[in-house]
């Protein structure tokens, strides 16, 4: 959690491999490997997944085509057989059911003309399909109504397992009513200024970031 402009999206994008960011210092070890040396697609194949804060529209490319390409690329990397059209469809339909996604989505262009909620839900759906080991959700809850929020939360909860880490970036405590976090970290000005359990989120809700920032200022000075 953290106020606007504190570097949450930057962290997420850097982890996913966005090349417009240059990492000047430090390293990122993921399952013992140097993540920063990998191309974005290699990271995805290794199990990193970021749900975009602003998912991209890709006109002319159907969701079916996109999902199948992604799934098979990742399966190849994991040494699994690629799925043919029939097997792919069967798997997708089963996942659709769990998340209550309309099958028509398959024939629509990726994210094109989707409402904000549909886009976010589509990110969660991709996550469920690709079964990553590190999930990063960048403000997936922003702008969602309560029904959409519940769907996103149930998607995330359905993926929780000991072999999987989920980093949920959010502004609001609201989401945390549905996804109970194991840990809460507060990012301010590019630094983690406080860490705690789920109570920390409640405290933030009550006092706001200003207090935390102020309180943490001496211990962890911001960049500025």
């Amino acid at each position: 959690m953290g106020p606007n402009g504190s570097g949450k999206s930057t962290l997420a994008q850097v982890l996913a491999g966005r090349e417009t960011y240059e990492v000047t210092r430090g390293e990122v070890l993921y399952e013992g490997k140097n993540l920063l040396e990998m191309a974005p697609e290699e990271r995805a194949c290794e199990g990193v997944f970021m749900a975009f804060q602003y998912p991209v529209e890709i006109p002319g490319v159907s969701s079916a085509q996109f999902l199948k390409a992604a799934l098979n690329a990742i399966r190849r990397a994991r040494g699994l057989e690629e799925l043919d059209a029939m097997e792919f469809l069967a798997l997708v339909k089963q996942k659709f059911k769990v998340l209550g996604v309309d099958e028509k989505l398959l024939h629509r262009s990726v994210n094109e003309g989707f409402s904000g909620g549909e886009k976010k839900r589509n990110e969660i759906f991709q996550m469920a399909l690709l079964e990553p080991r590190l999930c990063i959700l960048d403000e997936t809850d922003s702008g969602l109504d309560i029904d959409a929020l519940k769907i996103v939360a149930s998607g995330v909860n359905g993926l929780r397992s000991p072999g999987r880490a989920i980093l949920v970036i959010t502004h609001y405590q609201r989401l945390l009513n549905y996804i109970i976090p194991d840990y809460v970290h507060v990012l301010v000005d590019g630094r983690i200024v406080r860490s705690g359990g789920k109570e920390l989120a409640l405290e933030l809700e009550e006092k706001g970031y200003a207090l935390i920032e102020g309180g943490a200022g001496a211990a962890a000075p911001g960049r500025r």
Partner: peptide
């Protein structure tokens, strides 16, 4: 858009090809 596709595991050259196809397919 290329980054979006790559972040889902699709190799860069395939991502470019897919995007180009999408443009024509519109």
């Amino acid at each position: 858009a290329i980054f979006y596709l790559r972040s889902r595991g699709i190799a860069e050259d395939a991502a470019r090809a897919l995007l180009l196809f999408g443009f024509a397919n519109e």
